[in-house]
Design a protein around this nucleic acid. Sequence first.
DNA 1: ATTTTTACTATGTCAATCGTAGTACGGCTA
DNA 2: TAGCCGTACTACGATTGACATAGTAAAAAT
Lengths: 126, 126
Amino acid sequence: MISISSDVIRGYNDTIILFLLLQHPSYGYEISKQIKTLTEEKYIIKETTLYSAFNRMEKNGYIESFSSDQEGSGKRRTYYRITNLGRQYYQSKCSEWNLTKEVIEHFILKEGNYGNNQKLSRSNVC
Amino acid sequence: MISISSDVIRGYNDTIILFLLLQHPSYGYEISKQIKTLTEEKYIIKETTLYSAFNRMEKNGYIESFSSDQEGSGKRRTYYRITNLGRQYYQSKCSEWNLTKEVIEHFILKEGNYGNNQKLSRSNVC
DNA sequence: ATTTTTACTATGTCAATCGTAGTACGGCTA
DNA sequence: TAGCCGTACTACGATTGACATAGTAAAAAT
């Protein structure tokens, strides 16, 4: 079974997290669950990757942390909210993604053309 | 101007090189030129990145090197050809790419929806 | 004759992911 | 009420790939 390698998703973990924070402030465990369910378990972010992304992005000013005032129930957690700078960064990553997609797809063969060792025409490329 | 960050392309440099070797054996300088022209200069691979990819892939058995017997003209170069294992690896990376694309696009907003702080509906996502 | 292009090699740094481990609280069950 | 599972993290070191910088050297262009 094919799964996503870390080298591929690297560079988009921050974007993924920012997308989720764009909707509402959140915290590590919730974010990780959301990624898991949204991708139908195709991508499960490692805890260490996630928390180090939080640290990096807070240092860069893309997110801000605040503590849950544990009213009533639940364990105290560290919440993060996206900043304006983070929103800008997210936008630029979206643009970059479109460019990257375009670039990489020059080098990806459509299924069914793998075994074809005839000269490649433009139409074989997606 | 937006350019592609190395973290993004990381994990696809090997695939890009293998795609080009799939067509005919080649060598560093030629590969780098091809990447540049095929992407319309949107992606220019660094020399060190390229040659270290060659070394890594030869070690992994994805490619084989041979020396040009410099008949007549041109400087002696090291050519690489793709192996069967390399072909298999390339195929798996293509499949992985399709999966990755699907996953990442869950988290990328279409242009025009950036400033929208209404609740996100499925249709905002591409 | 000198510069530019071609064609590399060597070395060390950096950043992000990951493996492993450990802490600690809350809720549920036996 | 003891123990376990799920939640919510932190710490630390290893690994990997990309990159900066530097250098070599032959061929081609000027």
